[in-house]
Design a protein around this nucleic acid. Structure first.
Length: 396
DNA sequence: CTTTCCCGCCACCTA
DNA sequence: TAGGTGGCGGGAAAG
């Protein structure tokens, strides 16, 4: 009955007032504001706190405490950061800091994997398009697993597709006991890997969309559809979209994507900001292909002038290698990918209007002192982010 | 009203 | 089993 506290209990045991809106805290009696608690802002603060050369390992508890948030939120941030190569899980409660230097490589890998999945791979289930059943199963590649190939395969067929009653949680595998059992079996068996089931995986798949589509703009709505499959319950979609919002917010704060308004219609969408992932040699961080003519100005590239931390770079490789094993696949992605193209193709035609979006709330920005709309508004790289921000939590 | 998305319960996983 | 993780969706702020 007591059921926990109501939604927003302003402050309760907050040790520190966290930094509220980088400089926009002019109001004295600030009522509760979601912006100050956004994942985007939190992510920015996180980066400011840890993006320095002497950081090597991060403890979730310290992070939570320093940032003045509950652990739960740190998991959210960390999961997407890991998906983009900024962090690597080292142990329980512990992450190894890689930094932005790890991003290019991570993206390259994601792209390669995405392309591979897209082209190769058998088309799993026949054409039963309707519900494509979730995906969480993942047979996990893990290449090289000798005995691993049990007969699992896609437990896709599970629930048929229904058109009967809405409300049943479809997508959940649970019809054939045998199937279910074998699924669990090899799930536990050959999956020593991370349990990332969603946020992390979703992030990767979301990013893959950008890396493989020719267009670099997509709305969360479309993304959800693509990543989920065609027909879905309203509920699933809604949940997926919620997650995508979370992801998009942190990705935005990293400047990997940007929110924009789709052309004539005011439909919000996200645009990929870093054309990357070209297979170059090791050292150079990828980068940046000039935008095709259609895109507008502001675009940046990483790698161009990222801080070159050599020291880090050295270890970086070994660290990254360790984590290089991630293995998952988003088969759905390849199926749907095609769909999106057509959809997107017709959806938007010419220029979009990008508007300022500060997902991170008060990201920071004033730094460049007066960015005019229509011109290069965004700074160029993440670096600016750290420079401009001034963490207030000096909890060292 | 719709869109965005924070909060935190509690199932699940691991040590 | 305890504690770390993190799906998931209610429901409120923001638009």
């Amino acid at each position: 009955m007591e059921s926990a506290l109501p939604q927003h209990q302003q402050q309760e045991a907050r040790p520190r007032p966290m930094l509220a809106g980088g400089g926009a805290a002019k109001s004295r009696h600030h009522a509760y504001s979601r912006k100050e608690k956004s994942l985007g802002l939190l992510c920015s603060n996180f980066m400011v706190l840890y993006d320095r050369d002497d950081v090597e390992s991060i403890g979730l508890d310290e992070a939570a405490k320093s940032l003045g948030v509950e652990r739960r939120r740190i998991y959210d941030i960390v999961n997407v950061l890991e998906s983009v190569g900024i962090l690597v899980r080292k142990a329980k409660n512990r992450y190894t800091w890689i930094g932005f230097d790890g991003v290019p490589m991570a993206l390259r890998e994601l792209k390669e994997r995405a392309l591979r999945e897209k082209s190769g791979l058998a088309p799993l289930q026949t054409e039963q398009q309707s519900a494509s059943t979730m995906s969480d199963d993942e047979d996990d590649d893990k290449l090289g697993n000798p005995d691993g190939d049990i007969e699992n395969e896609k437990l896709s067929q599970t629930m048929d597709n229904p058109s009967d009653k809405p409300g049943a949680p479809r997508c959940r595998l649970r019809s054939g006991t045998l199937l279910f059992a074998s699924f669990l079996f090899n799930m536990c068996y050959m999956c020593h890997h991370r349990k990332e089931k969603s946020l992390g995986l979703l992030t990767q798949n979301f990013v893959k969309l950008f890396l493989t589509m020719e267009v670099d703009t997509i709305s969360l709505d479309e993304a959800a559809k693509l990543l989920l499959g065609e027909g879905h319950e309203e509920t699933n979609m809604r949940t997926k979209v919620r997650r995508l919002y979370d992801i998009a917010n942190v990705l935005s704060s990293l400047n990997l994507i940007e929110k924009i308004q789709q052309g004539d219609t005011r439909k919000p969408a996200f645009r990929w900001l870093g054309r990357a992932a070209k297979p170059s040699t090791e050292n150079s961080v990828t980068v940046a292909v000039p935008p095709p003519g259609k895109s507008v100005s502001n675009k940046r590239a990483f790698g161009t002038d990222i801080t070159n931390t050599d020291m880090l770079r050295s270890n970086l490789h070994s660290k990254i290698q360790k984590k290089a094993k991630l293995g998952e696949r988003g088969d759905i992605l390849k199926n749907c990918k095609v769909a999106v193209q057509s959809r997107l193709g017709q959806g938007k035609n010419n220029g979009f209007v990008y508007g300022p979006f500060h997902p991170a709330g008060a990201r920071k920005h004033e730094l460049d002192g007066g960015n005019k709309p229509g011109q290069r508004e965004r700074a160029e790289d993440w670096e600016s982010l750290s420079v401009s921000f001034r963490p207030q939590y000096q909890n060292q």
